[in-house]
């Protein structure tokens, strides 16, 4: 276990290094991405631009620039090219918003996905199963920005049932205000995943239910509930838990960009989208590192949980 963790930490460092390097390289090569031009302003003289270049270090070789940026990221001194504020502070401010969204939505899609998938499997072929299949397909194919905009407009703006977007920290508005602001984003983000998860679980259950050990379990004379819970569901959940960990890591790392944007949550994903649009390299680098960290972290946790759920798997 200790060796596994050490190896994973090394792996994590490598992944973050590679990802950040590639990101930097891409932005370095993008035409029109020269930050000195923009920092110096629209009407700057070539001399002013050159001064900015020297001041910010844009005249240094590629490797030095990359090294400087990485160093500043970890010391917290990284400055945005456009707003010229501290990037790490923006991320620290956005993280609770992103985490609120990710944790709530992930719980909803796990619980609902499993519940609906199990229900569907137990009624496989029946009308209710087919209805849920159609519903899941609709959920899967519904674009988040469209669904989000609709929900925001009709349920938030028109009906006034929910606030139309924005985020209120618990420390400012209390638990209830925070919750009210999160309900729509959670539901919209979870919709896609509920569709996927309920399908995956349904098929897993239908597969597992024909396994020999389930027949053995029935032959033992234990209750049908126990057969379903301890034998069918227990085994069907293994791939779901794996999937969930990976998706959760992605959303936690700021991957739910559309949801964050539509509901104006101003989380890390929102910040990322804004920075990409402005070709603002420092925040892009920092958010990429932030995202990679959570994805790799959750990957490692998934491996540990997977081994705990299935004794045939060894951590190696």
């Amino acid at each position: 276990m200790a060796r596994f963790i050490v190896r994973r930490l090394i792996g994590m460092a490598i992944v973050m290094l590679v990802v950040s390097f590639l990101t930097f390289l891409i932005f370095f090569k993008i035409p029109g991405g020269d930050p000195a031009d923009r920092l110096a302003g629209k009407y700057a003289t070539p001399g002013q631009v050159a001064a900015v270049e020297r001041e910010w270090g844009f005249d240094k070789p590629f490797w030095i620039q990359y090294g400087n940026m990485m160093e500043k990221t970890f010391t917290g001194d990284l400055i945005s090219y456009t707003r010229q504020d501290k990037v790490v502070e923006r991320i620290i401010d956005g993280a609770p918003r992103t985490f609120s969204l990710a944790i709530g939505a992930a719980l909803i899609w796990l619980v609902l996905g499993v519940a609906l998938g199990l229900f569907s499997a137990l009624r496989a072929g029946a009308l209710s199963d087919r209805f849920l299949t159609v519903l899941a397909l609709i959920g899967i194919s519904m674009p988040v920005f469209w669904l989000g905009a609709l929900a925001n407009y009709y349920l938030g703006y028109k009906a006034g049932l929910f606030p139309d977007g924005g985020y209120v920290p618990i420390s400012e508005g209390g638990l209830w205000e925070w919750f009210k602001h999160m309900i729509l984003p959670w539901s919209v983000l979870a919709t896609l995943f509920v569709g996927v998860y309920s399908r995956v679980l349904r098929n897993q259950v239908l597969d597992t239910i024909n396994d020999d050990y389930v027949r053995t379990a029935r032959a033992k004379g234990i209750s049908e509930r126990r057969v379903m819970g301890r034998h069918v569901l227990r085994n069907s959940m293994i791939p779901i838990v794996t999937l969930w960990g990976l998706d959760f890591g992605y959303v936690l790392g700021g991957g739910a960009i559309l949801t964050e944007t539509v509901f104006d949550l101003q989380g890390v994903g929102d910040y990322f989208a804004e920075s990409i649009g402005a070709l603002d390299v420092p925040p892009v680098m920092a958010v990429v590192l932030f995202g990679a960290f959570f994805i790799v972290l959750l990957n490692g946790i998934v491996d540990i949980v997977y081994a705990a759920l299935d004794p045939r798997i060894r951590l190696s």
């Binding site: 050990y213 032959a219 004379g221 034998h231 085994n235 004794p311």
Partner: peptide, 22 residues
């Protein structure tokens, strides 16, 4: 259910898959 395992018990063909792996 009350009879299964208590009055009549069964052994199946493939021991490799008849026990729950977890």
């Amino acid at each position: 259910r009350k009879l299964r395992g208590k009055e009549i018990a069964m052994i199946f063909q493939d021991p490799m898959t008849s026990l729950n792996p977890v």
